[in-house]
Design a protein around this nucleic acid. Structure first.
Length: 638
RNA sequence: GCCGACGUAGCUCAGUCGGUAGAGCAACUGAUUCGUAAUCAGUAGGUCACCGGUUCAAUUCCGGUCGUCGGCUCCA
């Protein structure tokens, strides 16, 4: 007999008893919600046999692993459906992803949107049949023979790369796939499924390989959960910064005159100005100085920096003037170095923290451009810190502090933090890379920030810490970045004179907190759904007289606000008050002030928030005090 | 850059199975002076993305270019 621990109690069973029977015995009833189990910490099929003492932990859709398995199994069902409909299609891989699953197929013709419905129908048939997922272990050689016979060349390629001698297969209906598993017990566990989109994707993610046809989908144990998911997508569309940017008149892109180049409209530019003012003030408080650099430099500078080599794919083409070649800047760093090198620096001068809102241009591939999030011309909130090696730890600590503070003011409290290490293409030697990576790691640990390592994700000149913000569409955007650079100081001979009278190499750190104003603006629009906090709102108050009779009084109120530094506008359109309120509400103006005969007589104002809340009989002075206070404190709630 | 879908008025979108287009909102004009999310009437607005081809005739069919959207790859 074997002993099994389940939810704290111990049961006994014959060796070879299936997981599902052990669970049934322990629970004393059927448990259809349990999809699979962890046996001694290993995810295992319900149909697997248990041959030794074990601890069994049940897994349902509510567990992360349960979702992954659920979606992975659904991808197999989809592949089975596709093979049923088009036997000539070759299968490749079909994993689960953060939200749902995909499967990549090799097929001459891409899948048409209409064909998705057909595949869904076929999947429903397989689900109705309640086909079980059957696991079988066979030798590698057998598997290769089998998939060769089936003409599944991609599977053969995958098996070739597997080290173990035994591989596992899973069958669902007539379709057998190479798969590590585990899987759901049977297809009927999938209650609601939706194929969401088709797309091209390279085999093994390499653009040199053949393009495959990918189908994305998602599935749930109930129709309600699927509806909830689809509603969430709909809600996210309402927050799309491209849609809101148009509706709120914040920015535009003029594709006919250059893709990925952003035009900030007056309202958008006002928000940017507020962010910039805040940003500059916070930097000056923390011992930064501001610098300004040009947009162009001769190619020699970029040859020295290494950009023409390692960064050539992202450069705008050369401009030739009087036999000189110029490049528009993709980064600000070489310029700051030129400023540094105009005079001898002492160890006493360091650290030097030089910040610039520097507009750079990078030639991004046309297919990756996306609203404000991915553009070709953008303004980085850049800074370079020149320091001695003994100052690195302290400076990195200060950087993490300012990042957390500034992002916090905008309401971003949690982020994903990555430590990106040496990529395949890099400059400098490995020892200095290791030194830099260790310094970054130490600073993260000291700051108590949880992080993941993005191996090989560093810039060509140094390792970095990336801090990513999640937007409303659940996309993760890289905003803050801190990059140690041991390499540019080398190339440009960036030195200081030490207390020993000798020349020493500086350590340079590049960093951006918001990343770029364009991307950060896009993230903010989606984060707030266009309803900015008062301090950022381009129009903070709309004063609206009820009739022309009240214009003078309303003007007086507006001037009172303007004098107090509040961005107050006046709505004297020939419209009823309901229409004025509607317009300003849709424009997400935080406060509306309504003045009619009553207000004039009682010398008060009527205040309405964009949320719909209203308060009558307010004194103008009290309102000015309240709003200026809120602006000063940068309160997010109105 | 690659795969797919798409490009009609300032915006959102109809429409023409080849005979040069329409609605709502916005704009403008006039009337209305109104109490917390749309007052009424009228006017104006489009080389149907751009360039070629087929055709008696192209916004519609075909090809190319540019761009947008969803992905892939890449990144602030």
């Amino acid at each position: 007999m074997i002993k099994v621990i389940y939810k704290g109690k111990t049961i006994e069973g014959a060796p070879g008893t299936r997981v599902k029977d052990l669970i049934k015995q322990a629970e004393g009833m059927d448990t259809p919600d349990i999809l699979l189990a962890k046996v001694n910490g290993v995810l295992t099929d319900m149909a697997a046999q248990v041959n030794a003492d074990a601890e069994i932990v049940p897994i349902t859709f509510n567990d992360e692993e349960g979702k992954k398995t659920y979606w992975h199994s659904t991808s197999h069902i989809m592949a089975a459906a596709v093979k049923q409909l088009w036997p000539e299609v070759k299968v490749t891989i079909g994993p689960s992803i953060d939200e749902g699953f995909y499967y990549d197929f090799d097929r001459e013709k891409p899948f048409a949107e209409e064909e998705l419905a057909k595949i869904e129908e076929e999947m429903k048939k397989i689900i109705k049949e309640n086909a079980p997922f059957i696991r079988k272990n066979i030798s590698k050689a057998e598997a290769i023979t089998m998939f060769k016979a089936l003409g599944e060349t991609y599977k053969v390629e995958i098996i070739d790369g597997i080290k173990e001698d035994i591989v596992s297969l899973y069958s669902i209906g007539a379709f057998t796939d190479l798969c590590r598993g585990p899987h759901l017990p049977a297809s009927k566990k999938v209650k609601a499924v939706k194929l969401t989109k088709v797309a091209g994707a390279y085999w093994r993610g390499d653009e040199k390989n053949k393009m495959l046809q990918r189908i994305y989908g998602i599935s749930f144990p109930t129709q309600e959960l699927l509806d909830e998911y689809l509603n969430g997508i709909e809600e996210a569309k309402q927050r799309d910064h491209r849609k809101l940017g148009k509706e709120l008149d914040l920015f535009s892109l003029h594709e006919e005159f250059g893709a990925g180049l952003v035009y900030w409209h007056p309202k958008g530019a006002m928000i940017r100005k507020e962010i910039e003012d805040f940003w500059r003030a916070e930097h000056l408080k923390r011992g930064y100085d501001l610098v300004v650099s040009p947009h162009l430099a001769k190619i020699d500078l970029w040859n020295t920096s290494g950009h023409t080599g390692f960064y050539k794919d992202s450069l705008f083409p050369v401009m030739t003037l009087d036999d000189n070649d110029y490049l528009v800047k993709p980064m600000n760093c070489p310029f700051h170095i030129l400023i540094y090198n105009t005079s001898k620096k002492s160890y006493r001068d360091l650290p030097l923290r030089w910040a610039e809102i520097g507009t750079v241009y990078r030639y991004e591939k046309s297919g990756v451009l996306h609203g404000l999030m991915r553009v070709r011309g953008f303004s980085q909130d850049d800074a370079h810190i020149f320091m001695r090696e003994d100052q690195l730890d302290e400076e990195l600590g200060k950087l993490l502090e300012i990042i957390e503070y500034i992002l916090g003011v905008f309401g971003f409290q949690s982020y994903e933090v990555y430590l990106s290490t040496r990529p395949e293409e890099y400059i400098g030697d490995i020892a200095t890379w290791d030194k830099a990576e260790t310094a970054l790691k130490n600073s993260l640990e000291k700051a108590g920030l949880a992080y993941k390592v993005d191996a090989g994700g560093g810039a060509f000149y140094g390792p970095k810490i990336d801090i990513k913000i999640k937007d409303a569409l659940n996309r993760v955007w890289q905003c803050s970045t801190v990059q140690v650079d041991f390499n540019l100081p080398e190339r440009f001979n960036v030195n200081y004179t030490g207390s020993d009278g000798k020349e020493h190499r500086v350590i340079m750190v590049h960093r951006a907190l918001l990343g770029s104003f364009e991307r950060f603006f896009g993230v903010l629009i989606e984060h707030y759904k266009g309803a900015f906090p008062v301090w950022l709102a381009p129009v903070q108050v709309m004063v609206m007289p009820l009739t022309d009779r009240n214009n003078d009084y309303a003007k007086k109120i507006q001037n009172l606000l303007i004098d107090a530094g509040v961005r107050a506008k006046f709505d004297d359109n020939n419209e009823k008050i309901g229409a004025k309120i509607r317009t300003s509400t849709m424009q997400k103006v935080p406060y509306m002030i309504i003045t009619g005969d009553i207000e004039v007589e009682t010398n008060t104002i009527s205040v309405r928030k964009r949320s719909g809340e209203e308060e009558k009989g307010v004194s103008a002075e009290a309102f000015v005090k309240m709003i200026t206070e809120k602006i000063k404190k940068k309160e997010i709630a109105i």
